[in-house]
Simulated scan of single mutants.
Amino acid sequence: MSTLLEQAIHAHGGIDNWDRFRTVSAELDIGGAVWHLKGQPDLFQGIELAAALRRQHVAITSTAGGWRGTFEPDVVGIGAMNGAAREERRTPRDAYQGHTQPTRWDRLHALYFTGYALWTYLAIPFLYARPGFRTEELPDWHESGETWRRLKVTFPETIASHSREQVSYFGEDGLLRRHDYTVDVMGGARGANYASGYRNVRGVMVPMSRRVFAYDDTMQKIDEPLLVSIDFRSIDFHTE
């Protein structure tokens, strides 16, 4: 494990504390320009989440929308809360073949993307210490009057996420500031994901707010439009 990753894990609460937990639950709102572009505005406003932390399994419930969905890497499904017919898609990543950034999505496209994205975000940086992940420290980055250390992370093929290679930026306090990736299921669209509003939740430092923008060829953030917003209203970790 790299020194930077060790420091980041310690700053976020430590691996021993993290390993106590098996699941996470949350209430949150997701918005931004991407959802209008994809034809699914407000789909993830006012949702509840329940996720496993040792495997990729996420359940999302929208009381207002009257639906409940589940994500796993090999299958996503969504149905009405009253038990009415459920839509399901196996090998869901195959359904994005030929997609570009403006390609419209159905609800299962949106659910797969959101499921793997939230699972990834909630597990960083502890996720990077798992078997199969490779890390490499990059030169420092200067932004917002701060110096951020950067860690390039190569994901194993067994983990569904935006792309195989991603970069996390950590402040002098060791907390995640920014997370860069390209989005394979959007034809390689770029995302610079800014984490802020940290809260101590059972000893884990969690960013309650995330804002995602595009970035240019020099890795500089493009301020408009705001692509994705994520605001957690509550979050809790559980040992069972």
Rank of each mutant, 00 (worst) to 15 (best):
Gln166Gly: 11
Leu118Val: 09
Val24Pro: 07
Ala160Gln: 03
Gly46Ala: 02
Ser196Asp: 07
Thr120Asn: 03
Val183Asn: 02
His12Phe: 10
Tyr112Gln: 05
Gly98Leu: 08
Glu48Met: 11
Arg104Trp: 03
Gly79Phe: 06
Ser163Gly: 12
Val153His: 00
Arg22Tyr: 06
Val206Gln: 02
Gln56Cys: 06
Met81Asp: 08
Phe71Gln: 07
Asp106Gln: 04
Thr114Tyr: 03
Tyr128Thr: 14
Met186Ile: 13
Gln7Gly: 01
Met205Leu: 10
Gly31Asp: 06
Val58Phe: 06
Asp184Met: 11
Gly191Glu: 12
Val24Glu: 01
His36Ile: 08
Lys38Phe: 06
Gly98Asn: 13
His10Tyr: 13
Phe170Leu: 08
Arg164His: 14
Gln56Val: 11
Tyr181Thr: 04
Arg54Lys: 15
His142Arg: 15
Arg130Ser: 13
Glu27Val: 13
Ala85Ser: 15
Arg190Gln: 07
Arg149Gly: 03
Val201Met: 02
Thr182Lys: 08
Pro92Cys: 10
Ala192Gln: 02
Phe44Val: 03
Phe213Asn: 09
Val228Glu: 08
Ala52Glu: 11
Gly191Gln: 09
Gly66Ile: 02
Gly188Leu: 13
His162Phe: 03
Gly77Asn: 12
Leu28Ala: 04
Gly83Ile: 13
Thr91Val: 15
Ile47Ser: 01
Thr23Leu: 09
Gly46Asn: 06
Ala117Met: 13
Ile78Met: 14
Glu6Tyr: 02
Gly69Gln: 03
Asp140Tyr: 13
Arg211Gly: 08
Ser209Tyr: 01
Tyr116Asp: 07
Gly187Phe: 00
Thr100His: 09
Ala33Leu: 10
Pro92Met: 07
Ala192Arg: 02
Lys38Arg: 06
Met81Gln: 12
Gly13Pro: 05
Leu4Gln: 00
Phe213Gly: 05
Gly69Ile: 00
Gly77Tyr: 10
Arg134Ala: 14
Gln101Trp: 06
Glu48Pro: 09
Glu87Ile: 10
Asp16Ser: 09
Arg150Cys: 15
Ala80Ile: 07
His36Phe: 04
Trp141Tyr: 15
Arg199Glu: 05
Val76Asn: 07
Glu137Ser: 11
Tyr121Thr: 12
Gly83Arg: 04
Gly203Val: 05
Pro156Tyr: 01
Asp217Asn: 10
